[in-house]
Amino acid sequence: MLKPLGDSSVLIQLGNAINPALNARVHTLSALLQSSPAVIETVPAYCTVLIHYDPLTTTYNQIKNIIEEKISLLDDATHRPSRRLEIPVLYGNASGPDFETVATTLALSPSELIRLHSEREYTVYMMGFTPGFPYLGILNEKLTLPRMSTPRTRVPAGSVAIAGSQTGIYPVDSPGGWHILGHTPLKLFDPLSENPFLFAPGDVVKFVPMETT
């Protein structure tokens, strides 16, 4: 389903749910569209792809035709191989200021909380909020918690946090309302680097608990 979002963007909706199969189609379609010279850039999200185009060179009708053609290729398209990244995390104490509260609220032992958060492979469903922030899912349902009622004004870069059915990592110091379980020493965003981002949408991520020294 295609709908204009203003006069220079089109939103393509492939479904209305958060699940890995639908999201994989999103990333495949995003890559197919990216190959068209009429497409300036694509923004894949959970179940949509937003594309930006230039109305000076491409009319709405033309871009609609291009999108429909790419959608027709979707079923036969090979899925882009996803990268698998291991992310070291130091859980609890100063690295995870909400770790203890979360464990208490969910009635989990510290080791169980670490296991439930780190045993799964997560997909980068989309990126947003701040440069380089990966929305990772889906969490084990035993870890589901609403966001904090009062967001922190400053969450340090590298904080690994959970909210709802998702987990994520703060790439830059920013405000935030997710529960912070731990910290990774990896840098997620470096604007001056040739590769400014650690993650890309569609990547597969596995947390690896670090030993406290």
């Binding site: 979002l5 894949p44 999200a45 959970y46 937003l50």
Partner: peptide, 8 residues
């Protein structure tokens, strides 16, 4: 469900 948006 969060989706892309743009200026305007």
């Amino acid at each position: 469900i969060s989706e892309g948006m743009t200026m305007g």
